[in-house]
Nucleic acid binder design. Sequence first.
DNA 1: AACACCATGTAATCAGTTACATGATTAT
DNA 2: ATAATCATGTAACTGATTACATGGTGTT
Lengths: 173, 173
Amino acid sequence: MNTLAYGLLSLLSYSPDSGYDLMLKIQSCWPAKHSQIYPLLSQMESEGYVRHVLVTQTDKPDKKVYSITDKGRDALRAWLTVPANDPVIRDELILKVFAMDQGDPDDMKRQLELRINYCRDRVHWLDRKIEFYSSKEPPPSRGMRLLLERGRFATQSDLNWAEWALEQLQDES
Amino acid sequence: MNTLAYGLLSLLSYSPDSGYDLMLKIQSCWPAKHSQIYPLLSQMESEGYVRHVLVTQTDKPDKKVYSITDKGRDALRAWLTVPANDPVIRDELILKVFAMDQGDPDDMKRQLELRINYCRDRVHWLDRKIEFYSSKEPPPSRGMRLLLERGRFATQSDLNWAEWALEQLQDES
DNA sequence: AACACCATGTAATCAGTTACATGATTAT
DNA sequence: ATAATCATGTAACTGATTACATGGTGTT
């Protein structure tokens, strides 16, 4: 039971879901590929945290729908009480701007522009998502709201920094 | 040559350094343990990106001081031109707040308070560092400045979010 | 003497990505 | 037909952490 496993349990605590959909949903807060999720789900099942049923579909391929067990819910509750580890941010761009004196300033401006575009897209996407969730009656979950809002805060600050950094570079040249 | 290796080259592009000091310095932007760095440095040396000399010290244990080679500088310059990968943020706290409806609200408040303290400490630490670097004459490097400033932006937004989230929870109860 | 920090390394394990593999269904 | 999306899985590899191991130096 690693962090990804608890992330999957968190999603399943709201509603049963297929491995494929869990994979899509967890991307925003704990990126993982299907090749990591499918084996983990069957391991979690063998340890009794989740179980699955086969659901046949006519419009799409059949799927396995997983749901959380009582043991899974207990494990999730216990996990919520232990202090979260410090966040880990791995951002290549920061390393590149750190080393920028070794290269061409124009390259660095291009890098920052790419980041600015990435952040702008993400902010818009998050805004639409937040709007969608808060317009729903009843509101789906407090957790989802806080999660989306966290993404917005972080992406906005990344954007603010990248725009500021680009200005710094342009002022110098 | 992975991202960590380029991170080490970036640091070495400023000044020669020991594995131990590189390990300490890289924590803020690309966390890595000494057990990952020492073997990587010797691999990088065997491939000609860095070289080392033994430096004997009287006040402290002897050390290996690595410096970047011409081949290393070329590789670093080339790396600066390729677009940076998207940033990856892995934050357990976000998963925990997402699942909070399954647990005790007081646990979640404790989690947020821990994060708030963590962020406040980090903001102060970064402020001191930024002040130290900008008071120096001549200013050490643009890259370092942007890197520290990026950390500040991000930590401040994390702090703002955590404080906002805590308020939300307190308003509800 | 005990502790903290400096300094380096290896071994075992876990986490995560990339590549390989297959096949259904829907839209163009 | 052919591409895109849905759906699941395994194998090989790379990246990262934890544990094991050693020893110097300085402080209390």
